[in-house]
C-alpha cells in the first residue's frame, strides 16, 4: 500500500469517532431560498445551488446535458460569456466532449436550466507522490493508484512552494510529494498537467 493511500485512509479513520451525520431533511428551506438571502451564506450540508457537477451525456448547440454523481439530469447553458477551462481557460465549447466530467458555477433558473459563468472540464487537484519521471511525463501515485501525468509544452507550469516557476523538471524528483492541477483524460489513468506544485 502506498504511503499516500495509507495516510489518506488513516486521515479518514482518524476522526470517525466524533462523526455526527445530520439528515438533509433537517436543514429546512430550499437551497435556492437559502442562497437568495445572502450570496455567501448557506445552511450547513446544503448543496450549493450555484454549483453544478456531472458527466456530459449530451451536447446540443450551447446546451450540455449532464448526469450528476447522484444520477440527476441537469441542463447547463454555455453561452458566449461563459469561461470554459479545459487544461487552460478560454477554450471553445467544441472542445467539450460527451464523456467529459465538469464542475460549473452559475445560476439555476426557474425552469431548471443552469446558466454557467464558469465551467471546469475534467479538472482534478490531486496530492500525489512522484514515483517516476521522464522528459515529457511523470508517473504518480495517488491513493495507491498509478497515474501518468503528461507535460504539455507551453502549458504545464512547475512551481515551487513559493509559487516560483521551476526550470525544467528538476523539482520533480522521485519520492517527492506534489500537488497536481490538471485535466483528466476520461476513461484512462492519465492527466494533462496544468500546474504541478512541488
Amino acid at each position: 500500500m502506498s504511503d499516500v493511500l495509507r495516510r489518506r485512509r488513516f486521515l479518514s479513520n482518524a476522526v470517525l469517532g466524533s462523526a455526527t451525520v445530520i439528515g438533509a431533511d433537517a436543514l429546512g428551506g430550499s437551497p435556492a431560498q437559502a442562497i437568495a438571502h445572502a450570496g455567501h451564506r448557506l445552511p450547513p450540508k446544503t448543496p450549493d445551488p450555484n454549483f453544478a457537477e456531472g458527466k456530459v451525456i449530451g451536447i446540443h448547440g450551447s446546451r450540455l446535458t449532464v448526469t450528476s454523481p447522484e444520477l440527476l439530469l441537469q441542463r447547463i447553458e454555455v453561452g458566449e460569456e461563459t469561461d470554459v477551462w479545459k487544461l487552460r481557460h478560454g477554450v471553445s465549447l467544441d472542445q467539450v466532449k460527451v464523456g467529459d466530467v465538469l464542475y460549473a458555477r452559475g445560476t439555476a433558473g426557474p425552469d431548471g436550466l443552469f446558466v454557467a459563468d464558469l465551467v471546469w472540464v475534467n479538472i482534478v487537484n490531486l496530492h500525489v507522490l512522484v514515483v517516476g519521471s521522464e522528459p515529457n511525463r511523470v508517473h504518480l501515485d495517488h491513493g495507491g493508484g498509478r497515474l501518468v501525468g503528461h507535460i504539455v509544452p507551453g502549458t504545464t507550469a512547475v512551481v515551487d512552494r513559493l509559487a516560483r516557476p521551476v526550470r525544467e523538471m528538476s523539482g520533480l524528483s522521485v519520492g517527492r510529494h506534489a500537488q497536481v492541477v490538471g485535466a483528466w483524460r476520461p476513461g484512462t489513468n492519465e492527466i494533462d498537467i496544468a500546474t504541478i506544485l512541488t
Binding site: L11, S12, L16, A19, K55, P186
Partner: peptide, 14 residues
C-alpha cells in the same frame, strides 16, 4: 468520477 471516484464520504462520512 475518474481519479476522484475513490474519494468517498470523508472521515465524517457525508
Amino acid at each position: 468520477y475518474g481519479p476522484c471516484s475513490t474519494a468517498g464520504g470523508g472521515a465524517c462520512g457525508d
